[in-house]
Design a protein around this nucleic acid. Structure first.
Lengths: 219, 219, 219, 219
DNA sequence: GATGAATGAGGATTCATTCAT
DNA sequence: GATGAATGAATCCTCATTCAT
């Protein structure tokens, strides 16, 4: 049955997106058919085509919908500002937020994995990938700006190699998120705050001197 | 037609597997058709069915074929043995091997991603998944055994929390591998040996005391 | 919204028919969707369904709309009347009108082809076909009547076989119209008046005698 | 059931093409689905895709298959040769062949109409159209060469405008074929030989002088 | 061992049509 | 009068799989 008010239509649209999210997450993009999505949403395939141009647009929409949650950048961006007196604390709190129940669920969701896969080329759609690369690059830049701010505020030594430090931070966070998805990560969450502090502490040791010494070792 | 020798048959089999690896890596499992594989290998679809039961068996075989390289466990297992006097050095060298050209290519390949996806359930095949979970769990155990060995040999302090240390190690390695797949990882490879040393050094600080303090903080 | 006046409605109706004509002509009946027509006319699909029962009715209407132009019968019918003293001249002028720019465009239009196709059964709609057969038969009769009139007025010899002459005339006109649609008809238009005169002149030679001789040759 | 010898396969292929011809002819290209064709041929849709790339290739093949019959060019081409002493007779015989039972059936078949439609853009496929335009142009050239040959051999006066004469001939033939498809053409076939002779005779009158006079009349 | 032929289920997409508003 | 939303059947096409040869 057709919905006849604008509100009804929005409900239908949402139902379709929700189904798509659920099913893409569960089975991946390719293995989910529009039939499945329609059935799950309680509409016909035609309804999907009323709201979206094609299957691809569905996932594009889902990406837009989850940008904010995915990045939760507000807190991070604050830490890049000159007016923030304690950027290290901001950073630390943002990191710690990653072991809140909600975040864990998100990172463990297959949808997050799906997004990663898009980025990494399992779902080859140029537009989607470009979008994703932008997001990741943006975050990298934010990390860099925070480290710089910490140096400026005296929370990290002047001789810290900011590029390498930001990189090390990303490795750690990527490692956490990626390990989170593994089966046996009960301890990980419990000890996460310790790992965060160790890692942040480590940053002090990533100095220009060390970096140049190590680089020279490698060809 | 030339008489088919056993050798010829093995060549065909290998060609099929090679094609499958290449194409699965490039486009993912679902998006690669048996036609594609056959064409790429220069055989007919029928030939695939002579050598393999179905598409699924192809990937199963590929997993078997790449186990060794993927884990490169020999070196690691050596580090778990009581007779090894310098387990930390073994571990360090195994870690450093991850930034050799060959390894990087492997980790950046979509096939590796594919394996990860199998493990994480995007490719839903029970047998495959079970296999993969075993592999990962096995490695975790190895890490643990090495850390223990290091403690035993006096390379790490007695009060190190071996579970947490092993976990931290995995987070780091997962983070490295996962970041490697991102677009901008040129710096990462250059600085990797530094990060390895920092991380190994860090392990000393992961003591029972710290772990219990932090755990008690979290609810 | 402005109040809808009857005039507005007629405008919409016209816009729809115009779009339909243009698009049917350009791409044919099957390949033109109601969506296309609606978009081209700047209305919604629903609007089409307000004015017309279905897609079929659109083309039916178009046929009605183009009857007059298609046949341009006034001039021809005049030539059948006893009171017309120069039926041959009427006929000639009507024929020559076929190489006016407007006519040429019409005959070259795919819409004209579409009408032919309806007639010939490529578009299977009984009502449409019946209508079309009537039109063509009507014209045949007019040709016949003109030839008879010419004989009566002494513009053609008494012994002309009127049936055959009318037929020859139709062959010529069909040939002209059909060749017009071919790619290389620039010369055709230039020489058309010559061909018309030659053909009209030829009619004199289509005598009962010749017809019976030739018919007897064929089994 | 799959066919297992090469011969069987050719039978299947032929069955598909035959069905396609029959159904395209009956209902047109767009209105005929591959399902219909498969059902009619007693195979599955998949079988069609084994033998042909897509629907479009089916019609392309059909065109190739009917080229010879359509053009029946052997006889015509003979008439263009210098060594042929009676080109006019050749031409005349070729024309007369158009009222043999077999030819009539072909021209009346909807498949022939379908070919015309392809040419005229109802089925818009660039490759198909290009092919068709070539065929038509080729025939036009043949007509021209024959007329020239007739002049050379003294069968037509020197002052005949060969271009215009060839054109007039095509108009006549097109008119015949096109009228043949009309419903009421019983007389046409009977009188065709007469019309042919009249028309051929007419060619003598299409002189350079007349052509230039008429052209000057028109703007 | 390997091929060529064929199957049949399922996929994305289009589109005429309906109807509450 | 006209719209926006939705339906559902049909269409072209892909692909894993089967099997006689």
């Amino acid at each position: 049955m057709a919905r006849h008010t604008h509100e009804d239509a929005q409900k239908t649209r949402k139902a379709i997106l929700d189904s798509a999210l659920r099913l893409f997450s569960r089975r991946g993009y390719e293995r989910t058919s529009l039939s499945d999505i329609a059935k799950y949403a309680g509409v016909t395939r035609g309804a999907i085509y009323w709201h979206f141009d094609d299957k691809r647009e569905l996932i594009l929409e889902l990406c837009n919908r989850t940008d904010c949650e995915f990045l939760a950048t507000d807190q991070l961006i604050a830490a890049t500002k000159p007016e923030e007196d304690n950027p290290l604390k901001c950073l630390r709190e943002w990191m710690l937020a990653h072991c809140e129940e909600k975040s864990i669920q998100y990172f463990r969701s297959s949808f997050f994995l799906l997004l990663c896969n898009i980025f990494r080329g399992m779902v080859d759609d140029d537009q989607l990938q470009k979008r994703f690369v932008e997001l990741v690059e943006a975050r990298r830049q934010i990390f860099l700006d925070i480290i710089k701010n910490c140096v400026r505020k005296g929370q990290l030594p002047k001789n810290v190699d900011v590029q390498a430090a930001a990189e090390y931070l990303m490795v750690f966070m990527n490692g956490y998120v990626s390990s989170l998805r593994a089966a046996f990560s009960s301890g990980l969450v419990n000890n996460f705050s310790l790992y965060v502090d160790l890692t942040l502490n480590q940053l002090k040791g990533i100095t220009h001197e060390l970096v140049s010494v190590h680089s020279s070792v490698r060809v």
